[in-house]
Lab assay of single mutants.
Amino acid sequence: EFSMMFKHFDKDKSGRLNHQEFKSCLRSLGYDLPMVEEGEPDPEFEAILDTVDPNRDGHVSLQEYMAFMISRE
């Protein structure tokens, strides 16, 4: 189920989600993330990124995504 969600939000089929795609994916899974303006701080989402994209390369791989989802179950 999680990998299907990942593929759905991987719009460019790159095998990874940019942070915006990842945020959309989390919202569709029921995460209550506040709407913030582009460039505004988003501490809740930043905290999630610290876990799922610790190297802050700007992308979430399928492996990082799956590890995050399994840790939340």
Rank of each mutant, 00 (worst) to 15 (best):
E64R: 13
D50M: 03
E64G: 09
K11T: 08
P43N: 13
G30A: 04
R56Y: 01
E73S: 14
L62H: 13
V36R: 12
C25Q: 04
F22A: 02
E38Q: 13
E38S: 12
E64F: 01
H59C: 12
E37A: 14
R56G: 06
A47S: 12
R16P: 11
E37S: 13
G58T: 01
Y31T: 08
D50A: 06
H19Y: 14
E38H: 14
C25F: 04
P54Q: 07
M69Q: 05
P41Y: 11
K13N: 09
D53R: 02
S28T: 09
L26D: 01
E64N: 15
L29A: 09
A47C: 12
E73C: 09
I70Q: 15
A47T: 12
L17H: 03
E40D: 13
Q63F: 05
P54K: 13
F68A: 04
E38N: 13
A67P: 03
L29H: 05
E1H: 02
P41W: 10
L26F: 02
H19R: 03
D57C: 14
E44A: 13
G30F: 02
G58M: 02
D12A: 15
A67R: 14
D12L: 14
E37T: 12
M35T: 13
P43K: 12
S71D: 15
L29V: 10
L29W: 06
E44Q: 11
I48G: 00
L33E: 03
P34Y: 03
S61K: 12
M35L: 14
Q63S: 14
M69T: 08
D12G: 10
K13M: 04
R27F: 08
L62P: 03
R27D: 06
E40N: 12
S24W: 04
T51I: 13
Q63V: 07
D53W: 00
F2D: 04
E44Y: 09
M35W: 11
G58N: 03
K11M: 14
S61Y: 10
P41F: 14
H19Q: 02
S28Q: 12
D32H: 13
H8R: 14
G39N: 13
E46S: 08
G15D: 08
D53A: 02
L29R: 03
P54D: 03
E73G: 15
A47H: 09
Y31C: 09
G30D: 08
D53H: 02
S61P: 10
L26S: 00
P43D: 08
R72K: 08
M4P: 02
M66L: 12
R72L: 11
G15A: 03
C25M: 08
V52E: 00
M35K: 14
F68H: 04
A47L: 13
M35D: 15
Y31M: 13
Q63E: 15
E38I: 11
L26K: 00
E44H: 12
D50V: 02
V36G: 11
E73T: 15
P43I: 08
Y65Q: 02
G30K: 06
P41A: 13
S71T: 07
M5T: 08
K13S: 15
A67W: 06
R56A: 05
L29K: 04
L62V: 08
F6Y: 06
P43E: 10
L49N: 02
M5I: 06
S24F: 08
S28A: 15
I48M: 07
E37Q: 14
L17G: 02
S24T: 08
Y65L: 06
Y31R: 04
R56I: 01
M66W: 04
D12Q: 09
F22S: 07
E64P: 06
G58Y: 00
L29T: 07
S3Y: 06
E46C: 05
D50E: 09
E46N: 09
K23A: 05
M69H: 05
P34M: 08
D32Q: 13
S14T: 07
E44T: 11
P54R: 09
N18F: 02
S61E: 09
D57M: 13
G39F: 07
N55V: 07
T51L: 13
F6C: 04
R56D: 07
Y65T: 05
G15W: 02
E40L: 10
N55K: 11
T51Q: 15
G58F: 00
Q63P: 11
D32K: 14
P34I: 07
F45V: 02
V60G: 00
F22W: 02
D42L: 04
H8Y: 10
K23T: 00
P54S: 07
V60I: 13
D32P: 13
F22C: 01
Q63T: 10
L49S: 00
L49V: 04
V36T: 14
E21A: 06
M66V: 08
M35G: 12
S28M: 10
V60W: 00
G30P: 02
P34F: 07
P34V: 07
D53C: 02
T51S: 14
L62E: 15
S71P: 12
D42E: 12
F68Q: 03
E1R: 12
F22R: 01
D57E: 14
A67H: 10
S61D: 11
K13P: 02
R27C: 09
I48R: 00
R56V: 03
E64M: 10
L62C: 07
E44C: 10
Y65S: 06
V52D: 01
M66S: 08
D53S: 03
E44D: 14
P34T: 09
E21G: 10
L33H: 05
L49I: 07
V52W: 01
A67K: 15
N18H: 03
D12P: 03
Y31V: 14
R56T: 03
E73R: 11
L26P: 01
F2R: 03
L17F: 02
E44W: 08
D57V: 15
E73F: 13
D32Y: 11
L49W: 01
R56P: 00
D57S: 15
E73M: 10
M5L: 07
F68D: 02
F45T: 03
S61A: 10
I48N: 01
Q63A: 13
Y65W: 06
L62S: 07
V60Y: 01
D57A: 14
I48A: 03
M69G: 04
D42Q: 09
D53Q: 02
F2C: 07
R72W: 07
V60Q: 00
E46I: 01
L49H: 00
G39D: 12
V60N: 00
I48P: 01
Y31G: 03
E40C: 11
S61I: 05
H19G: 00
R72D: 05
E40S: 12
D42M: 03
E44M: 10
I70V: 12
E40W: 07
S24P: 15
P34N: 10
P34A: 12
P43T: 11
D50Q: 06
V52K: 00
F6V: 03
D57L: 14
D42K: 01
K13Y: 15
E40T: 12
E38W: 07
G30T: 01
E44I: 12
E46M: 06
V60S: 00
D53M: 01
P43W: 07
V60H: 00
V36Q: 12
F45L: 07
V36F: 07
E37V: 11
P54H: 07
N18S: 13
Y65N: 03
M66A: 06
L26N: 00
M69N: 07
V36M: 11
I48F: 04
G30V: 00
V52G: 01
L26R: 00
L62W: 12
Y65H: 07
K13R: 13
P54T: 06
F45P: 01
C25G: 00
R16G: 04
E40H: 13
A67V: 06
R27M: 13
Y31L: 13
F45Y: 07
G39I: 04
K13Q: 15
D12V: 04
E38D: 14
E73L: 07
P41H: 14
D50K: 07
S28L: 10
A47M: 13
N18M: 03
T51V: 15
R56L: 04
H19T: 04
F9L: 09
H59D: 09
N18Q: 03
M5R: 15
L49P: 00
H59I: 09
V60K: 01
S3A: 04
C25T: 05
R16M: 10
G58E: 01
D50H: 05
M66P: 02
Y65E: 01
E44P: 09
F45E: 01
A47G: 11
Y65R: 01
L17W: 00
E37L: 09
M35C: 14
F9C: 04
C25R: 04
L49D: 00
